[in-house]
Nucleic acid binder design. Structure first.
Lengths: 344, 344
DNA sequence: GCCGCCACTCAAAGCGCTTTGGATCAATTT
DNA sequence: AAATTGATCCAAAGCGCTTTGAGTGGCGGC
């Protein structure tokens, strides 16, 4: 059933039926009701394709997902973020489309096509890196976008929703030093990623504030897998001057660290402390009366909500100036931290 | 730049330009080349909206994601599956759109709309449950679809790609019994889900074959979170007749089990054995010379490839009869299994 | 020299919607 | 009584593409 047929059934013009269904005022309440009844009766749903062509709006936003890293890793955070964004999108009648971006150079083409083909009204920028050139590109294209995370060293205004990563890791480091730790290892994400860069800043800043010189031997950055956590922690603990605490960028990596600690015959939270960032993933709840990990927590699903919300605002009002939202983490005390062991 | 303008620039009709770009034979090689040059020069990309309207094809497939369970869990497997499907979609010029389905009754409406509005050419059915009524619905709607996993007790023909869950868990159970275990606990996923139902079948079948009566006290089913694994394992190990081995449906849950074992002061692979299903998630590689977990492994990313591939075939040839693909798992021996401890 | 054929090219219709620019008619105003 | 207004409704154009059906002109065969 399409508009024309529906109009014929009702002995009305397409114009009137269209207006009745889209809530325009130039139609009497009586006929509006009649039209709506008929529409639900015939299960009429307007063709998205035609609507998009006629209105110039796709009623869709796009996600361009960088499938990156050594082994084409998909960010484990992805599912929850999408779920968050999806909630607000579907509440506003928007769809989400995704494209996978394998190689770096592919990505520019993807955005250009998205714009030229008009398949989306806006995009969310995933995984910003430092000096991310996508920001300039998207601005130039005039494609509304919101970044999930900031891109450092960019002076162009643009919209983003980010976690205060610097402050989070600074606070986490403060916590550890206040417990007496001064050999604190950092297992960071890839430091081309902006969030990782900022976390290291927070970590180093806190250390220097406490008069500790950051030790390169205690700092690593890599794709945040479980095995990365295990391998790095195992190696560091076997070193000459092992750390007494780990600050970790992902709960998945932290799980690897926990495994390494157990394997070394130590007890997490007693012999060795661990603080991790916790994205509050639905399948990895870090909960309980006393959560397993002491963590800097920030719900990535909530971030998905906020990003989508902001993006839809931009789409509906293109003149709206860029907006930023900085989410503070909760510092959650769990079982994985304790006072630094006394030197033997 | 649109077709009309491009045609004008070239002093050709829209028809010819369109045909030149879409590879139709009725156009001379000379002009085809000329057109293609101009197209790339002007960065012309045909409007997806207009193309969709004109051809009746959206060049997109849909994913309807059930965001379900007690705490709106997003399946951790999701990201990798999507990445797999995305690969083949983008290789064929297709986009993927996702809709979140919160409540059960929502879902039917989502599919109906997807069809009526014509926003996708086909869908992948996620998370089939037993006697899944979506199969009948999609067939009735005439919307091409491929299911990721089967739906038991449905005698309608339809296409699916599934892991041989029954055989996988049967083999895993066999392995454990051959190691001398006869109190093997099953930590399954929600047994409304088809895959979980089948896994239990395999497990029970193997047990009975070995003359062991399945013990309800050793069987659980729930959302496959980490804490579920920890809680269930902790409880079972504290019971009167604790299990000597765990068979687990998800590596994430298995991680919880490992934590419970460590907490209880036991050694995994020695005091207590664990076999888990392993979806080969990119961020949770169960690798190394000897993998951490003994596992039934099947790449969910590969499944994504296959599902998308099959779906695109159906879309391109609607007369193609339903096809099924059953993926066998690899049984990987890791560090988490060993002979059953001798009774004290 | 005429016909038919092949290789190209084009004008125009159509996909299903929105939206512009009238029409129509009753009620109100002058 | 004529003109204005407001409330409804409509015909038709247009969104940017594909595709049908219809020309062109050049060429060999009779």
């Amino acid at each position: 059933m399409n508009l024309k047929e529906l109009a014929k059934q009702l002995n009305l013009s397409q114009t009137t039926v269209s207006r009745a269904l889209n809530g325009y005022p130039e139609v009497s309440e009586a006929t509006r009701l009649r039209v709506q009844k008929a529409a639900t009766h015939y299960k009429y749903a307007p063709s998205k394709r035609a609507k998009a062509l006629a209105t110039g709006r796709a009623l869709a936003i796009g996600h361009v997902i960088p499938v990156s890293g050594a082994n084409d890793m998909v960010n484990p955070v992805f599912g929850d973020f999408i779920a968050g964004a999806g909630e607000v999108c579907s509440a506003h009648g928007y769809e989400m489309t995704m494209s996978m971006a394998a190689k770096e150079d592919d990505e520019e083409k993807i955005y250009r096509n998205l714009k030229a083909r008009g398949s989306v009204d806006g995009v969310v920028l995933h995984g910003p890196v430092m000096e991310d050139n996508r920001v300039a590109l998207l601005r130039e294209l005039g494609l509304p976008f919101v970044s999930h995370g900031r891109a450092s060293r960019i002076d162009l205004p643009y919209s983003w929703v980010d976690v205060n990563n610097r402050s989070a890791f600074q606070r986490a480091t403060d916590l550890l030093t206040s417990l007496g730790h001064n050999r604190i290892a950092l297992l960071n994400g890839p430091e081309t990623m902006d969030f990782a860069y900022r976390r290291r800043q927070g970590y180093e800043h806190a250390l220097t504030e406490h008069g500790v010189r950051p030790d390169p031997a205690l700092m690593m950055a890599d794709d945040m897998t479980e095995t990365y956590g295990f391998d790095a922690a195992t190696r560091m603990m076997a070193a000459e001057k092992p750390p007494t605490a780990f600050l970790v960028s992902s709960i998945i990596t932290a799980i690897g660290v926990r495994r390494a600690i157990a394997r070394a015959g130590k007890v997490m939270g007693k012999d060795i402390s661990v603080v991790t960032h916790d994205d509050n993933l639905s399948y990895l709840p870090n909960a309980g009366e006393v959560p397993i990990f002491t963590a800097t927590r920030s719900s990535v699903r909530l971030a998905g909500n906020k990003v989508a919300d902001l993006l839809l605002q931009h789409i509906n009002d293109p003149t709206m100036p860029p907006q930023q939202e900085l989410l503070e983490v909760e510092l959650i005390i769990g079982q994985s931290t304790g006072p630094a062991p006394v030197e033997a």
